[in-house]
Design a binder for these strands. Sequence first.
DNA 1: TCCTTTAGAGTCATCCTGACTATAAATGAA
DNA 2: TTCATTTATAGTCAGGATGACTCTAAAGGA
Lengths: 246, 246
Amino acid sequence: MSTPPAPGGYDPHAFEPFAVTVDLAVLTVREERLHVLLVQRGQEPYTGEWALPGGFVLPRESAETAARRELAEETGLPGATVAGLHLEQLRTYSEPDRDPRMRVVSIAFTALVPGLPEPRGGGDAVEARWLPYGSYGPLAFDHDRILADARERVGAKLEYTCLATAFCPPEFTLGELRQVYETVWGVELDRPNFRRKVLTTPGFVRAVEGPPRRTGGRGKPAALYRAGEATALHPPLLRPEGRPSS
Amino acid sequence: MSTPPAPGGYDPHAFEPFAVTVDLAVLTVREERLHVLLVQRGQEPYTGEWALPGGFVLPRESAETAARRELAEETGLPGATVAGLHLEQLRTYSEPDRDPRMRVVSIAFTALVPGLPEPRGGGDAVEARWLPYGSYGPLAFDHDRILADARERVGAKLEYTCLATAFCPPEFTLGELRQVYETVWGVELDRPNFRRKVLTTPGFVRAVEGPPRRTGGRGKPAALYRAGEATALHPPLLRPEGRPSS
DNA sequence: TCCTTTAGAGTCATCCTGACTATAAATGAA
DNA sequence: TTCATTTATAGTCAGGATGACTCTAAAGGA
């Protein structure tokens, strides 16, 4: 028998309840390093420690709605930014003792973002910050595990989807796009080969009209591109060797 | 604020609870068709309709433990079979109205199995059966959606993992392995090319010693193989064209 | 005995990739 | 000013992987 002790009436309060939360692994590339959006907890348990943004799903919300709400609350990122964010479900963590308070099942999401404004704390979070991946002590709960899963998933998706453009601003150079791959994979890629692959994959990127060029960098100015309409990479762009998961 | 109305005390009964369930998309290949393990519901809601096996996660269980328990209960499959089954989390479905009774969040799993004994009903299930994918009316809840997601995921994983051997018995012919790909993808593959790809991928399959051969089939007897130690396919075995999702 | 079916060996042209070379256009240092 | 450095971008070339085939072997069924 699998039904909890509420045979016919489904009394929602008759059995020990689960809490359902969402956690967000929001990743970006800054200064050639992978960065993670973390918040400092303002409540028990793990008060003062770094954790992924997230929180309880409310009674009438879907998990994705809750994820956007919590992200906006805890990081103060602009509403339009959060609304337009591409969220993807990572997996659900349900070990019985992952939260010391009570039984909490957490649905984890991953989001990839280009450079964003500095976040600020809010809601249950004292502070919110971009930190380089791995540059922090152990996170609260099982959030280190979630983050590792997120990184692995993102690394894999870069191979066979056009997801890398999500890390870039609306207009970007091929060098910036290559940086995304190099940073997430932790390898160096051959520039001409990368360029060839991206440009010969139909719909991966679209050249921006006229010859506008990138300012600021060291070398020769680069042409600008926008994300194309393709979502999948056929054939894929495989990372060299097995994964050297930095 | 995201914390439910239990600021300091975490009274588990103080707010409207969520129920957490698991649902299983168990797939196999039978007679050149993809089959799904379904149960006929013995309880409200959707009494008498076909649904995925599954049920409530108990207070001290992880989702995966619950999935195995429910599968054993509802289908009567042998305990050893269920224990050794490779379960993979698919995703979690959390739309507020997906269950008419109350708020239910369901963690869906996918399992790939070789030919298995006929299941029987049990627990909340009146009956349990293998049905050809798509050969049934609408399923209970959002289970059609879950099943479609499972098929898509499995099709994708066949490309870049060695997962196809999970559909095969311990010893199998390359023809049987090819059938798995053809059935899940809904395409025909060139036999010599498929053979070359499988045999030149290190660790995909291991030839069984001595020249034992397959009985029963029409044509020339085939050599037998076992699953190798590899789990990933580098480079992948891509399906032809875009997905003709049957 | 043939026809059909499947296994399995092998060929060939094409595409894709990794490794390189070379040139152009910017910045910063000497 | 000049040069070294950095990055972008155009090519080349060989080898590997793939798709489309052909051919032979070995079984069962008509």
